[in-house]
Amino acid sequence: MIGEWVTERLPENWRWIVTTRAAVGLALLVAMLSVVIGIINIETGGVSGPLAPHVPEAVQDAAGFTGALTGFLMVGSALALRRGLRAGWWATLLLMPLTAAQGLLQASQYSYPLVVLSLVSMPTLLLTRRQFDRSLSLTTTQLAAGGALVGVQAYGTFGAYALADEFDGIDTLLDAFYFTLITSSTVGYGDIGPETEMAIVFTMTVVVLGVASFGIAIGALVGPAIQARISKTLGIMTDSELELLENHVLVLGYGDLTEPIVTELADADEQFLVVTRDEAAASELSERDIRVLSGNPSDEGPLQRAKIENARTVLVATNNDAEDALAVLTARELRPDVRIVTAATDRENTAKLERAGADDVISLAELGGHLLVRSALGSDESPVVSRLLESE
């Protein structure tokens, strides 16, 4: 891709300047400018620019309406960019040249800053392409709801157009779509109405199906986003997010010992989930975009919600050997074949944790002593320490 080719040839200091935050900020600025300028040109007709004599007035008016609409669409794509979604990057990349073209067609002096900003923003968007790599995951319910909404609008549009002779005011396919959208959304301006019994029955079906499809679509598409925002604030994951977990590392507990584990897993780009009953820690982890589930790591319910049956391995690190043992027992009971690794803060509890069901138990005190000696003598000067570390 062009963006990757240019990025690889940029000096290192320039790569720091071109950030994802700049891409999101520019996209939002273009979106707001497109909306404002579109509304200004609709209301006032704008101040004619050099291109005005070459662009039909009807095209200028249409470009004003569509420019405002494109601006609102770009607000959505910018918000998707903020979440790091690849779909948001593609949507913004397609909308940027569209806003520039609409600015030119508006042929107003107000529109030229929009054209310039759109063209300037595109290289920044291309240079940050690799930063937007998160996929957009839609559930079967969401796909079905979106399909139902589109299907009802198509049914109403083509049905009304086919029955155009039985309606007052439907002459084109656009009229039919307008009638369907206004009717199914229950706005009903009354400028288009049925004149025969067949048209009345058809209009009733459009109302019923339209209201149902709008309600289902809002519940399925918007509801999870609201739930996810509330869940993130409370430091928990939604059931739809938990359903996607597979072959992940399950980290039970959170504390001073767990933070390096979380950092290591994040740096390794591993899929993992932290289960902790510390609500403050859960909220903090969630703000860092780390998957977290609020609950007791030694209870069956949270571990089942955390999809322990799909987990690749379980790391137990509650900073308390007794709590570790309970968590290990619960995890082993729910998933006899999973690999469980834990740490013992007290060396005497190593054997107890192994009897509880842990496959590997790391003694922090013993390992710390080995590392101190190795650091003092040098790794090559202490083969005994090396063998001890390998045995750990």
Rank of each mutant, 00 (worst) to 15 (best):
L174C: 00
L174E: 11
D175K: 01
D175M: 02
A176V: 04
F177N: 10
Y178M: 03
F179A: 06
F179W: 08
L181F: 02
T183G: 08
T183Y: 09
T183H: 10
S185H: 11
G188F: 01
Y189Q: 08
Y189T: 11
G193L: 13
G193R: 15
G193E: 12
G193M: 15
E197K: 10
E197P: 00
M198Y: 09
A199Q: 01
V201R: 09
F202K: 08
F202W: 09
M204H: 09
T205D: 05
V206P: 00
V206S: 00
V207P: 02
V207T: 14
V211M: 12
A212T: 07
G215S: 14
G215Q: 08
A220K: 07
P224D: 06
P224S: 09
I226R: 14
Q227A: 11
Q227R: 10
A228M: 09
A228D: 11
R229N: 10
S231T: 01
S231W: 02
K232E: 11
T233I: 07
L234Q: 14
L234I: 13
I236V: 11
M237T: 07
D239E: 15
D239M: 08
S240R: 13
S240K: 11
L245R: 12
E246I: 02
E246W: 11
N247G: 13
H248C: 04
L250Y: 00
L250R: 02
V251A: 06
G253A: 06
G253W: 08
G255F: 02
L257H: 13
T258R: 01
I261D: 02
I261S: 04
V262F: 01
T263Y: 09
A266E: 15
D269E: 14
E270V: 07
E270N: 07
E270L: 07
Q271W: 04
F272R: 03
L273Y: 08
L273P: 03
V274S: 01
R277M: 12
R277P: 07
E279T: 14
E284W: 13
E287L: 14
E287G: 11
E287I: 10
E287N: 13
I290V: 10
L293E: 07
S294I: 12
N296M: 10
P297W: 01
D299E: 15
E300Y: 12
